[in-house]
Amino acid sequence: MDDLPLSELDAFTAIARERSFRAAARKRGVSASSLSDSLRRLEERLGVRLLNRTTRSVTPTEAGQRLLERLAPALGEVASALGQLDSFRDGPSGTLRLNVPTIVARTFLPGIVNRFLTAHPKVRIEVIAEDSFIDVLAAGYDAGIRYDERLERDMIAVPIGPRRQRYVTAASPDYLERRGMPRHPRDLIDHDCIIHRFLSGTSATPWEFDRNGETLMITPTGQVSANAIEIEVGAAVAGLGVMRTFEELLMPEVEAGRLQLILEEWVTEFSGPFLYYASRRHMPAALRAFVDFIKAEPQKGR
């Protein structure tokens, strides 16, 4: 074990995370065959099969999964420690991997990322936007962006983006003319609603309405359910139902007259998102630079 190369452990981690030799090779900038050779040598050294390989899939064995769970944080610490050497160079470098909700990727994050990369030309950023509730660190990300109720308590959280956001309800003028104007959230029980589905959920998420300290929960029903905001907004504009989502996503259609806000006394306001990451001694230089950049940025609604 004394001469076990870190490169072989890193190759195994990359393949196991991506579940693909080709995808891992693209991430590492090497050939798939070189990763395959590294994995073969590692399995021979350990005397244990770590990955099951077929022509269609790559999956960790039980031994491989246990090794991955223990190895990923350790390799992260090694990379972070090496990243500290960037302070002796001209500036931070390396790759910053972020997992963020789609609302964040669509609204304020592009501007922040563009300004950050302009200030730090040696840093690369990989952003994956999804609404699944995953363990971002176990999945190999350096940090994530989430809202209050989704933050793990053992993480460090830094405010990012707008500090207050709102959920609003809207429908097309044509739909409201045909079906009537809802005057109370309970009226939506008799209306077609456009439902946002999270990949991790099999049922519709209840809609929460707030007014003067009163909270109501309504379970929407309707013809359309999707996990893509383009489908949802398009359906609302086409007059297929009522939708409820982040104000930022609906205002362009409202201002253009294609959608109309309703139930405006029942707007739900909540705190904005946070960048979060693990507490550890060595932070990757790219992540440290990003955290410092976020802290220095003026934020709306402080």
Rank of each mutant, 00 (worst) to 15 (best):
L137Q: 07
Q223A: 13
G201N: 12
I195M: 02
R56H: 14
V78N: 09
E248K: 07
D3L: 15
I294P: 05
D86P: 10
G180F: 12
V127A: 05
M181L: 14
W266A: 07
K122H: 15
L96Y: 03
H184R: 13
G234D: 05
G64P: 05
A235H: 03
T59E: 15
Q260F: 06
A23M: 13
E255P: 04
L51E: 01
F198C: 03
K300G: 11
A171N: 01
E208W: 10
A228M: 07
A138C: 09
R211N: 09
C193H: 01
E126L: 13
D192M: 00
E265V: 04
R41G: 10
R150C: 03
L6G: 08
I262P: 01
H120V: 00
P159I: 06
A63V: 02
A278D: 11
Y141V: 05
A23C: 09
T61N: 07
S36N: 14
L46V: 12
T61H: 11
Y167Q: 14
E149H: 13
V291P: 04
E248C: 01
L259F: 08
R70K: 11
A72P: 03
F293Y: 13
G213A: 08
Y141Q: 05
T202K: 09
A16L: 06
E149P: 00
L51A: 05
N99H: 15
R106S: 10
W266S: 06
S172G: 02
D10F: 07
T55Y: 11
Y276L: 12
E253S: 14
A25K: 02
R302K: 04
F88A: 14
D37P: 00
A105G: 09
G83R: 05
P252R: 07
I160P: 01
L68Q: 13
R124E: 14
L35K: 07
V78A: 14
V168P: 02
E269Q: 00
R53I: 15
A63E: 12
G94I: 03
D187R: 06
R97A: 14
P162M: 13
A204I: 01
A119R: 13
